[in-house]
Design a binder for these strands. Structure first.
Lengths: 338, 338
DNA sequence: GTGAAAGCGCTAACAT
DNA sequence: ATGTTAGCGCTTTCAC
């Protein structure tokens, strides 16, 4: 650890408070002593202990980012966006992984009430029977911003993308390319974004005169093996499915893997479009059509909102910012003529 | 913020220290008061302020993970490995992104001397003319563990993979599959792992009677566009190149993109193998042969080492743990018969 | 302008 | 078994 203010005060034969004020460039200290203190601080390489002051100020310059996982292009790009503004404002980013378990999420959020961080950015874990109160309690104590996966009924800002519209366009795209039996595959668990996407999906079907049926909506297990198994089961049970809107990137990859294994040719037998930020979507076999979410931007905006609340003390709780996704059409949804 | 010990002491008509000891289950407190305090703490939802105690203990339960980037499967998996042990031990993970700029890295490391964290895990940024002293100063003050990209000459533990052997085997693989003009492509900047890989690459060449020549070693720009440009330039200048060992995943993707654009057929005209942890390597067109690094495991082991130093006060500075990578042969390096 | 003193929330000697 | 006191590093009144 570096030298303390107390020590510097002794060395310079000044009072601790004088040194403290000089370091913070207070107007009540003479230019002369200021320079003297600053020079000495530089010389002995003084670095203030962030947590000592935090006791009085109740501000740590730490923020928490709570995520389901990090090995996913959406979240890793979101972290980049968050980090870009955090670094610029001198804040430090603590990352918490819930692994899609809302019990773990709950205990993390409880812990965050300790004063370890000044604010929280969160993309909630999927989970049924979630208890909203943890969120409410937490956001009474410090600024909290939801991004992407929000939790309705909590008085906190939200940064999302247009899930309804994206799903609607993606589905419409499949139908226009000739699909008659599309499904929406999403991981298990209650999730705001899945809800919206489901609605968008249904809206596109309705527009094409297809009545909604629960069989169009397919849930899959969350883990790697489980979802592979689920996708296999889907094709066993519904061999006539000819289109997939994959709600997450991993599911799309499972669909690709299962299709390959079962000699289902994409896009001839099956068209696939996925919510994904994979930069290499175009290098897949076949290139994957995607709904690209503005991950970096969403992270950036969410963080900016948080710092507005933190630094400018702006009340952002009623903000709800929607940043549109982009549909990138590639070969996996190409029209095929038989 | 939650209630303080002081407040609880008042409410219970006890001394602050008694409450403090009761909470920490000290033997010098009667079972009766302990239960009373614990019950009350639970009732008012007491959560200790981690940084108040940190002043006396000089321990924050925070660790720093310093990385070049997060949108890369190696690093995101490494974070998973780190997080798995950090969560288990009740530690909190702060993530710092250097974006491969060693100046930024330096200022981050300087900041970390403030006492904000108890220890550091780092995978260093590429960079020439780096100043080792920042590392030395830092690791005199707190435990520091290098993982994957280490910095020689610093007295700190290292967790790495067998870069020399991996590169040797990858190159040998290319040669055995018929390549006569392989190159090793690596991003610019001085980097321990690149150094080892270069040696492994050269060793395989030597074994096949090919004398080392600098033209076999190709540097590319670090950023997205830059590396695309570099790869294009490589094929312009050396059209006879028929094999690539890509030192990072992104470069391999650029090679794929450029090959496609220039009608170079992989693996017929060009064989490609990459250091990569992409789970979807097998779904690329063609499936990419990879040297898969034990990212999660490396993160896990590095973190375990750090906590050994932190919790058990074990001196781990001379540890040097090598975890082997695995070569996964896929279509991008398949032998082709003309 | 500078300094003394109190206090942030907690721990740890040292009484009692 | 409980309480008193001091102190961690720093900020912030309030005196001088």
């Amino acid at each position: 650890m570096s030298i303390s203010i107390k020590r510097m005060a002794q060395d310079l034969k000044l009072a601790v408070s004088t040194v403290s004020k000089a370091l913070r460039d207070s107007h009540e200290i003479s230019e002369e002593t200021k320079r003297m203190v600053l020079d000495y601080a530089r010389k002995v390489n003084y670095i203030p202990n962030p947590y000592a002051g935090s006791l009085t100020n109740r501000t740590t310059k730490n923020i928490a980012v709570v995520l389901p996982e990090v090995a996913d292009t959406f979240f890793s790009n979101a972290i980049n966006g968050i980090d870009s503004v955090a670094q610029a404002r001198g804040y430090h980013v603590m990352v918490y992984l819930t692994h899609e378990q809302h019990l773990r999420e709950m205990s993390i959020l409880r812990e965050l009430r300790s004063g370890r961080v000044d604010g929280v950015l969160i993309s909630v874990a999927a989970g049924d029977g979630r208890d909203i109160s943890v969120f409410n309690v937490l956001c009474d104590e410090l600024p909290l911003i939801f991004f992407d996966r929000v939790c309705e009924g909590v008085n906190a800002a939200q940064v999302l993308t247009d899930d309804f519209e994206s799903a609607y366009h993606a589905t419409r795209h499949l139908l226009l390319k000739g699909c008659s039996e599309p499904v929406l595959i999403a991981p298990a668990g209650e999730l705001s974004i899945i809800h919206s996407r489901k609605k968008g999906f249904a809206a596109a079907l309705a527009e094409h005169g297809i009545r909604w049926d629960e069989r169009f909506f397919y849930r899959c297990a969350d883990d790697q093996d489980g979802s592979l198994h689920s996708v296999t089961a889907l094709f066993e049970r519904h061999p006539r499915v000819d289109g997939v809107v994959a709600s997450v990137e991993k599911v799309a990859m499972q669909v690709y893997a299962v299709a390959r294994e079962r000699n289902i040719v994409i896009p001839r037998d099956l068209k696939v479009i996925a919510f994904s930020n994979l930069q290499i979507a175009s290098l897949l076999d076949p290139p994957l059509s995607t709904i690209e979410q503005p991950a970096f931007e969403m992270g950036r905006v969410a963080a900016t909102l948080l710092f507005d609340a933190l630094i400018k003390k702006r009340d952002v709780r009623n903000e709800r910012i929607i940043i549109p996704s982009v549909l990138r059409e590639r070969a996996s949804t190409a029209e095929t003529y038989i």
